[in-house]
Amino acid sequence: MTGRPARAAAWTAGAAAVVAGGYAGLVSGALPLDMGVGRCIRPLGPQTLHVAAPRDIVFEVIAQPYLGRATRAMREKVQVIERGSDMVLAAHVTPLAGGRIKAVTVETVRFTRPERVDFRLVRGPVPHVVEAFLLTEQAAGTRLVYEGELGTDLWRAGAWWGEKVAARWEAAVAGSLAAVKEEAERRARR
């Protein structure tokens, strides 16, 4: 193949590589896109669950990977970059596509003991995410509520992307909440 067909094939292959690389970079958080134009905000959650454990224990389970000594499994998911007295900067790793791609988000995590943990996205697949875990003491344990918002740019195209990201994001949070519930209830039984 020579001449014009060869150039067309080369351009097509190059364009496909750029699109595939851009998509992988966007999904993984390696290529954050924050244009500040046409921002669409959508809610995350709320997700609510009852934990049969005191609020202090639930708070400690949430805070441990950030403020204390993380388990080996948690060290694979959460890497603290910088630690302060009530806030950390942490990278969160989420496997995607059967583990072939790892999405890495960087977030600030602020702790208001014992009732609240706030997250703010610094780098990730969308330009804006703020979230909170709210803990309320109840007679038979703790009410744990997750809520937040996710923002994307570029109007309708961004809103479409936000729906895709939000579905995965909320599923990851649901998994984290289930693990918090299980560990807090295990500690409370001891």
Rank of each mutant, 00 (worst) to 15 (best):
E149P: 05
L150K: 04
G124T: 10
E107I: 01
E182M: 12
A103Q: 11
R120G: 11
K164L: 14
P125H: 01
V180H: 00
T71F: 13
V106A: 08
A103C: 11
H128A: 14
E147I: 06
I101K: 01
G124V: 10
T136M: 08
E170C: 07
H128N: 12
T112C: 04
R75K: 14
K77A: 10
K102W: 12
Q79K: 13
D56R: 06
E60R: 10
A178Y: 05
E76F: 13
K77Y: 04
A171D: 12
A73Y: 12
L96P: 01
W155I: 12
V109H: 00
V145M: 03
R83C: 10
A103K: 10
G148I: 03
V117R: 00
A70M: 06
Q79I: 12
Y146M: 01
T142A: 05
L89Q: 06
R143F: 05
V180D: 00
T94V: 13
R113G: 04
L150T: 05
V88E: 04
L154I: 12
V88F: 07
L121N: 03
G141D: 02
A159C: 03
Q79H: 11
F133P: 00
M87F: 09
V104R: 12
V88Q: 05
P54S: 01
R110W: 02
T105N: 08
W169V: 05
T94H: 08
V122H: 12
R113N: 10
P54V: 01
R116D: 02
F59Q: 01
E170I: 09
G162Y: 04
V106K: 09
Y146L: 01
R55H: 02
G175N: 02
F119W: 06
Q79R: 15
W155S: 13
D153E: 13
T108L: 07
E182V: 08
A172Q: 04
Q79E: 15
G99Q: 06
A97Y: 11
L144P: 00
G84E: 15
R69P: 10
L144T: 01
Q138A: 15
A167V: 08
V58K: 00
E107R: 06
T112R: 07
I62M: 02
E131G: 12
D153K: 08
G124H: 07
V129I: 15
L96V: 08
K102S: 14
